[in-house]
């Protein structure tokens, strides 16, 4: 693994001076953020604050205008970096699941390992089954992706990302498209993942999750990181009035 540059406890991914604009609208203004190995960082903030864009920049689904994203000793934002190779180490889970509709559950999980890691079909399927059982979907391996419920789809999406054995997992509002009853099943999977020591960056509106699971909470407002602190501090004693306002419903007195 290319883990050698990231010392245990050191930053696994480091964002420096990141800028991104859509047309004339500057969405990210000089973002600095570092995520340590084994850390769970949640990004919270109002809609339009740029948190999803920041996350999508971290595996280059959005191309930054300027700045650096250091991962495994390489700058993802540099021109003509081999992004495909680096993306193999970064798993991503989307709000709208994005399971491959032309495949069944097993096919979703084995496509990338077989194509990119040159694993044999049997080997990839064993690994996929292990991950699917871990997310509680061992009975659904042959189901078409389109036949699953939202919560099941999202758990398959997590298993699919895990099959590449990533060093870092990015979650882009993974529960926003789910009804309140099945949000729990996805959050439980994410909790287990965090407990196993996975490095995670999670954009979410689930404040209980941010508070309970994360090591660091980042509050974004209008394209900048307004406040960055431990969950205890963020949810008991935020420094900025804007943070206080945003979190007013969740603050404990």
């Amino acid at each position: 693994m290319a883990n050698d540059t990231a010392v245990q406890g050191g930053p696994l991914i480091r964002v420096e001076g990141l800028r991104k604009s859509f047309g004339s609208h500057l969405v990210l203004k000089d973002i600095d953020l570092s995520v340590n190995q084994g850390e769970v960082v949640t990004i919270i903030g109002a809609s339009g604050s740029g948190k999803s864009t920041l996350l999508r920049c971290m595996n280059l689904l959005e191309t930054p205008d300027s700045g650096h994203i250091w991962f495994h000793g390489e700058d993802l934002a540099a021109d003509r970096v081999n992004i495909n190779r680096l993306r193999e180490h970064i798993g991503m889970v989307f709000q709208s699941f994005n399971l491959f509709n032309n495949m069944n559950v097993l096919g979703n999980c084995t496509l990338a390992p077989i194509t990119l890691k040159k694993m044999s079909k049997a080997e990839a399927e064993d690994e996929a089954k292990r991950n699917l059982i871990a997310v509680g979907l061992g009975d659904f391996i042959n189901a078409p992706a389109t036949s699953l419920s939202g919560g099941q789809k999202q758990r398959v999406a997590i298993a699919r990302a895990l099959c590449m054995k990533p060093d870092l997992m990015l979650f882009d509002e993974p529960t926003s498209a789910l009804d309140p009853e099945i949000v729990g099943e996805v959050l439980n999977v994410m909790r287990d993942l965090a407990a196993e020591g996975m490095t995670m960056v999670v954009v979410t509106h689930e404040m209980a999750f941010a508070k309970g699971v994360s090591d660091k909470v980042v509050f974004m407002d209008q394209g900048v990181i307004a406040e960055e602190s431990s969950p205890q501090e963020m949810f008991t004693n935020p420094k900025l009035p804007r943070t206080r306002e945003f979190l007013s419903r969740y603050l404990e007195d």
Binding site: E88, I90, M92, F94, T115, L116, R160, A161, M164
Partner: peptide
């Protein structure tokens, strides 16, 4: 996007 995020070209 999902396919690219897994590292597929």
């Amino acid at each position: 996007e999902a396919a690219r995020s897994l590292g597929l070209s």
